[in-house]
Amino acid sequence: MVAALGVDIRRLFMLVFGFGAMLAGFAGVMAAPILSVEPGMGDTVLILAFVVIVIGGIGSIRGAFLAALIVGLIETLGRSLMPDLMRLFLAPSPARQVGASLGSMLVYMAMALILAVRPRGLFPARAG
């Protein structure tokens, strides 16, 4: 329908795709000095980026921004605090292992929970 209005959709999509890639490249410039640069450095970010988009609500820029902050906090705090938290209930050695894996899992648990309760994400894009 949009094509009938005289918009070249292929070109539009190409430009949007290119613009997204440019922003990702910019993020890479920012990340390189503080993370280790290696061929697989995008893998973990890729999956987390998907998680952010789904939690925030697909198509919602405000949602992506807020969800990125939420996911970042859950991920970092989970990894650093979970092992200590687990020591309240468990012996030190299992606490470290259980805590570490729970910390990594926390983001995905949050996503599963949010999708189960609010399938359209936390901040759904307004229609129209």
Partner: peptide, 30 residues
């Protein structure tokens, strides 16, 4: 039981979430 309630991209993401949970569980099995 949870995942099948959703569809499309949400189904992809929720199955990914459970897959990742299983992955981290496996890597913690000392």
């Amino acid at each position: 039981a949870v995942a099948v309630r959703t569809s499309g991209v949400h189904f992809i993401m929720i199955t990914l979430a459970f897959g990742q949970m299983a992955f981290f569980t496996a890597s913690s099995l000392a």
